[in-house]
């Protein structure tokens, strides 16, 4: 016999509460609560110890007129544009090449290209720190051997951001490649057969079949890559500390500095909250695209 509560909330409500409790408590306490608190803190002054003290919109007003905030904004935008553009270009290129030789023959390449994604950013940063070391690093050795002058790389305000972008593209090209490849595998074989019967060359088949049918995948890769670039932090924190001269001051590093170096939790939260709006819009787009792509590809 059903109780009244079960009648209103569904027959399994008791069991559901028990099964969902652990996950929901963790997500509530350590994801949603901090998010709500971040919004709240953005209207306060707090040094992580005393306070917080309500100051209204003061942080936001100050931020939008602060040169450093706009520097962080510009650096993040530059990083995103170049990193996403190049990563997608190389990712698509690698995927087309592997698709061209066949998935089986391409397996080894796939493993090599994907490998950097599996290695932590701190380790890769260590490796690149050595490769780009101005005095003894292989990168400058290579430049000298072909008669070019040495570059200061991470220690030069001109080259630090391009270095970080380069490292990022090097790491993430394999990641986008994997998603592109999955999209390519879902393209119906018949289309290629027909194109072939019509005498379309390899390039022609890529241009008229593969690329147009990759539309949804490409959009998905784009959004995912933009989110990932927005959140860039580790390589900057480890390699340049935002420098030299704020040339690599990305948004998350800026939040980090405000919060944990200058102990301005309120100001850090204001940046984080402002920044989150962008991330959220993109994330919702990603979710929608992910759904659509799932339908489109017929995979679960």
């Amino acid at each position: 016999m059903r109780t009244r509560v079960q009648h209103i909330l569904g027959k399994d409500v008791g069991a559901a509460a028990a099964f969902l409790m652990p996950a929901m408590v963790i997500l509530g306490l350590f994801v949603f609560l901090p998010l709500a608190r971040s919004v709240f803190l953005s209207f306060t002054r707090w040094n992580l110890l005393v306070g917080p003290e309500w100051i209204g919109l003061a942080h936001y007003r100050r931020l939008f007129t602060s040169a450093r905030f706009w520097t962080a904004f510009r650096v993040t935008a530059l990083f995103t544009v170049f990193s996403v553009g190049l990563t997608m270009f190389f990712g698509l290129l690698l995927a087309l090449l592997i698709d061209g030789v066949g998935m089986r023959a391409g397996r080894v390449y796939q493993t090599v290209f994907f490998l950097p994604t599996m290695i932590s950013l701190v380790i890769l940063a260590a490796v690149w720190l050595y490769v780009l070391q101005p005095q003894i690093g292989p990168a400058n050795a290579l430049l000298e051997s072909i008669g070019l002058p040495r570059i200061g790389w991470l220690r030069s305000s001109q080259w630090a951001l391009p270095s970080i972008i380069g490292m990022n593209v090097w790491r993430n090209a394999g990641y986008t490649m994997i998603i592109f490849l999955a999209g390519m595998q879902a393209i119906p074989e018949q289309l290629y057969e027909v194109a072939k019967m019509d005498g379309a060359s390899l390039m022609r088949r890529i241009r008229s079949v593969t690329i147009p049918l990759l539309g949804p995948t490409t959009l998905f890769v784009f959004v995912v890559s933009v989110i990932r670039s927005f959140l860039v932090f580790t390589e900057v924190q480890v390699l340049t500390g935002g420098g030299p001269g704020d040339s690599t001051l990305v948004m998350v590093y800026y939040i980090w500095q405000e919060g944990f170096r200058y102990y301005r939790a309120g100001s850090a939260s204001a940046i984080a909250t402002f920044f989150f709006v962008f991330v959220l819009i993109l994330s919702i787009a990603q979710m929608k695209l992910s759904e659509r792509r799932t339908h489109y590809m017929g995979v679960k």
Binding site: F30, W46, I255, A265, V279, S283, I284
Partner: peptide
């Protein structure tokens, strides 16, 4: 609704909530 909330939790990166999370923990 709860399932959507669960999915939504994936949209909140640690980078955005690290300051209050640190304070809380």
């Amino acid at each position: 609704l709860l399932f959507y909330i669960t999915l939504a939790s994936m949209m909140i990166p640690i980078q955005v909530i690290m300051v209050p999370l640190y304070g809380f923990v």
